[in-house]
């Protein structure tokens, strides 16, 4: 993604007359990366779509309070992360009385999704990733799939770089162990 184009949008986003047009451009520039950030966490396309819509609507309503302390993209990523964690918490609450594990529910929903194209190995890997606590899974996804720098992840999650490194290493160990045990 071209950060300079995002920076160019900032003055327009702050101007009420140009805000709507600039926001549309912002959506077009950022939607794909944000979508995949959310999708990796919620797994199902429809859920990712809902969370992404909520993310942008929240961003649109809060634009007036954006003070530019961080990059606009980091700000959007933060909103998307919060929306995703809120969504997952509500899903977990819905499933609290179910005898089936929440991870199993998520996994079967993922497999039932027409936009899931995984094979056995990928299913096993997703299962291993799902076994992580949500925040650790978030850090793992950002580092492993998006190859984000720890400093960037730190800005988004508000966690120190040291803690993030430790969290990622633990996550990798757990996944390796999980895959080994499954074999």
């Amino acid at each position: 993604m071209d950060n300079s184009r995002l920076d160019d949008l900032l003055p327009k986003l702050m101007d009420a007359r140009e805000r709507a047009g600039a926001f549309s451009s912002l959506v077009r520039l950022t939607q794909e990366r944000l979508y995949w950030h959310v999708r990796k966490m919620v797994l199902v396309h429809e859920d990712a779509n809902d969370v992404l819509q909520n993310t942008y609507m929240k961003a649109w309503r809060s634009l007036g309070s954006f003070r530019g302390e961080c990059q606009i993209y980091t700000w959007l990523y933060r909103i998307a992360t919060n929306e995703t964690l809120t969504f997952l918490a509500s899903q977990r609450m819905k499933n609290v009385s179910s005898p089936v594990d929440y991870e199993d529910v998520m996994l079967s929903r993922m497999e039932a999704d027409v936009y899931y194209e995984g094979e056995e190995m990928q299913r096993k890997f997703q299962r291993a990733v799902l076994s992580l606590p949500e925040k650790q899974r978030l850090v793992f996804n950002m580092r492993y799939y998006d190859e984000m720098k720890y400093e960037e992840i730190s800005e988004i999650t508000g966690t120190s770089v040291g803690a993030l490194k430790a969290s990622y290493h633990h996550a990798v160990r757990k996944i390796e162990q999980f895959v080994r045990d499954e074999d």
């Binding site: 959506v27 995949w36 999708r39 990796k40 396309h45 779509n49 819509q53 936009y115 997703q126 799939y145």
Partner: peptide
Amino acid sequence: RELPFSVPEGYFERFAEEME
């Protein structure tokens, strides 16, 4: 790092229009 997920065809174009 391949993901086993896909999106409907033209999804991102439609999403941007919907947001507009």
